[in-house]
Design a binder for these strands. Structure first.
Length: 123
DNA sequence: GCTGTGACTGGGT
DNA sequence: CACCCAGCCACAG
């Protein structure tokens, strides 16, 4: 059989697709980290891919991207809005508390998405 | 096709 | 929390 079969549609969600699904599922007033999303997807080391996915995400996903921060709760991708202050305003508007001008209180707003179906990653 | 870079993380110091 | 190092994958030059 030929390997070129574009008519086939496995409909298998790719990595960035799953990232966007989780990002848009983050409830208001809550935040999550790149590593958490990557871990739920089954690849904790894929945190970089999460960032890449968000940097190349559709506009509707960008509406939720402000709820994604790094492991220290810092607005690492704040400049993607033109200025971190914009991202901070969005989070504060949802009731998120900050321990610094550009650092959220993870101990209070850290949200963990529901584990996906990933038999792999036994760490 | 190799190299550098990146919205990252974890562990050690 | 800060700095250094190593691992991870995808994309741009």
């Amino acid at each position: 059989m030929d390997a070129d079969d574009t008519s086939n549609s496995p409909a298998e969600p790719s990595f960035p697709e799953r990232v966007w699904e989780i990002v848009v599922a983050i409830p208001p007033g809550q935040v999550t980290t790149y590593g958490t999303i990557a871990a739920v997807l089954g690849n904790r080391r894929a945190a970089r891919m999460v960032g890449w996915a968000l940097s190349s995400c559709p506009e509707h996903v960008g509406e939720h991207a402000h709820r994604v921060v790094n492991r220290y709760g810092e607005l690492s991708g704040g400049w993607s809005w033109g200025h971190p202050d914009i991202m901070r305003a969005l989070l504060e508007d949802e009731g998120v508390q900050f321990v610094a001008d550009y650092q959220v209180d993870l101990d209070r707003h850290l949200w963990v998405p529901p584990l996906q179906d990933n038999p792999e990653d036994s760490e």
